[in-house]
C-alpha cells in the first residue's frame, strides 16, 4: 500500500467516525428519526472494503453510511438523507437504511437481513452474461448467514461460478444475540467452505482487510468463481440507537477498543509513512470540517414537497 492510499483510507475512516458521531448527536436531538445503525468501530473494514473493490458493484446492509461516503457519495447528500431532506441521496425517501447510488455502483441500503444477497447473485449473473470484468461484492452480517437466502445464494453462485465476493461482517452479535447461541460456529466461513474458497481477516485492521479483499477480487476477476471472506470485528455502539448494547460487558468492550482501527492506522501512518502529528491532525480537522458542512447543509436543506409523494412509483406515468 502506498502512502497516498494509506492517507486516503485514514481520512475516510476519520470522516466516517465523525460522520457517525454527528449522526448520533442529531438523532438524539431529533433531527434524524427512525432506525439509525452506527458503524463506529467498524470504519476500517467499511473503508478498506470500498477501496479494495473500487470498480465492481456493491450490495450491502442498513449499516452503510461509512461505505456510502467512502464509495464516493457526498457526505452532505448522505447526511441530508438521514435528515429526510429533499437534498438527500434518495430525496428523503429512503433514510439512513436506504442509500442508493447507481452512478457509484452502490445498491446499498437493504434493510431485510440477507435480502440483498440474492440480488447480488443476480447482478453477478448479469455481469458474467455481459462479459463485464468487474465482479460484484455483497456485504452482510454474521446474523444473515443463518437465513435461507444466504444458503440459496451460496448454492447458486457456486453452481454458476459467478464473479461474486461474499463479504461477511462478523461482529459477533445479531442485534443482541451472541452468534454462538444461534449458530454452531463462531466463524461463519465454515458454512461456505463446501461451496467455495474462504478467507478470514482481522476486520479491525484496515490494511489487512484491503490486502485480503484485493486478493479475493483478483481471484474473481480470473474467473475462479465466488469467494467468501469473513472479517472479524467489533461494533462499539448498540445494534441501533435504541439498543444500549449492555449484553456485552465492560471487559469485552475494553478489549474491543484496544483494537481500534483508527488508532492502528494512525500509528502506521506515523511509523511507516512518517507522517507528523501535525499532518495527521490536519487530516482529522479536514474530516471534521466536512462533517460540520454536511450537518449544516442537511439542517438547511428543504423538506420534500408533498407533491413528490406520488413520484417514482413507476418509471414513467402509467
Amino acid at each position: 500500500m502506498n502512502k497516498m492510499l494509506a492517507e486516503e483510507i485514514y481520512y475516510d475512516m476519520v470522516l466516517g467516525r465523525f460522520f457517525e458521531l454527528a449522526a448520533k448527536e442529531h438523532y438524539m436531538a431529533g433531527d434524524i428519526a427512525g432506525f439509525l445503525h452506527l458503524d463506529i468501530g467498524q470504519e476500517g473494514f467499511s473503508v478498506a472494503a470500498m477501496k479494495a473493490f473500487a470498480k465492481g458493484d456493491v450490495f450491502t446492509t442498513y449499516r452503510e453510511h461509512v461505505m456510502a461516503i467512502s464509495r464516493g457519495m457526498d457526505p452532505k447528500a448522505v447526511m441530508a438523507e438521514l435528515f429526510g431532506k429533499v437534498s438527500g441521496v434518495s430525496r428523503g425517501r429512503g433514510g439512513s437504511m436506504h442509500l442508493f447510488d447507481p452512478s457509484h455502483f452502490f445498491y446499498g441500503g437493504d434493510a431485510i437481513v440477507g435480502g440483498q444477497i440474492p440480488n447480488a447473485v443476480g447482478c453477478a449473473y448479469a455481469r458474467k452474461y455481459k462479459e463485464q470484468q468487474d465482479g460484484v461484492m455483497v456485504v452482510f452480517g454474521d446474523g444473515a448467514t443463518n437465513g435461507g437466502a444466504f444458503f440459496e445464494s451460496l448454492n447458486i453462485a457456486s453452481a454458476q461460478k459467478l464473479p461474486l465476493l461474499f463479504l461477511c461482517e462478523n461482529n459477533g452479535y445479531a442485534i443482541g444475540t451472541k452468534i454462538t447461541r444461534v449458530s454452531p460456529f463462531e466463524k461463519q466461513a465454515k458454512k461456505a467452505e463446501p461451496y467455495m474458497l474462504t478467507m478470514e481477516v482481522d476486520g479491525m485492521d484496515a490494511v489487512a482487510v484491503y490486502e485480503t479483499l484485493r486478493e479475493a477480487r483478483h481471484l474473481i476477476e480470473d474467473g475462479h468463481g465466488p469467494v467468501f471472506v469473513e472479517a472479524m470485528l467489533c461494533r462499539y455502539e448498540g445494534h441501533s440507537m435504541s439498543d444500549p448494547g449492555n449484553y456485552r460487558n465492560k471487559e469485552e468492550m475494553k478489549i474491543c477498543k484496544e483494537r481500534d482501527p483508527i488508532e492502528r492506522m494512525e500509528k502506521m501512518l506515523h511509523e511507516t509513512y512518517l507522517l507528523s502529528e501535525e499532518e495527521i491532525d490536519a487530516l482529522r480537522q479536514r474530516a471534521q470540517r466536512a462533517v460540520d458542512d454536511a450537518v449544516e447543509f442537511a439542517s438547511a436543506a428543504p423538506e420534500p414537497e408533498l407533491e413528490e409523494l406520488y413520484d417514482n412509483i413507476f418509471s414513467k406515468d402509467v
Partner: peptide, 24 residues
C-alpha cells in the same frame, strides 16, 4: 439557534401529519 434556523424550512413536521395531499 439550530431551532430558529429550522423554522425557515417551509414544511413543519406537525403540518405534514394533518395536511395529506390530495390523491389524483
Amino acid at each position: 439557534e439550530v431551532a430558529s434556523l429550522k423554522e425557515t424550512v417551509p414544511e413543519k413536521k406537525e403540518e405534514k401529519m394533518v395536511k395529506a395531499p390530495e390523491k389524483k
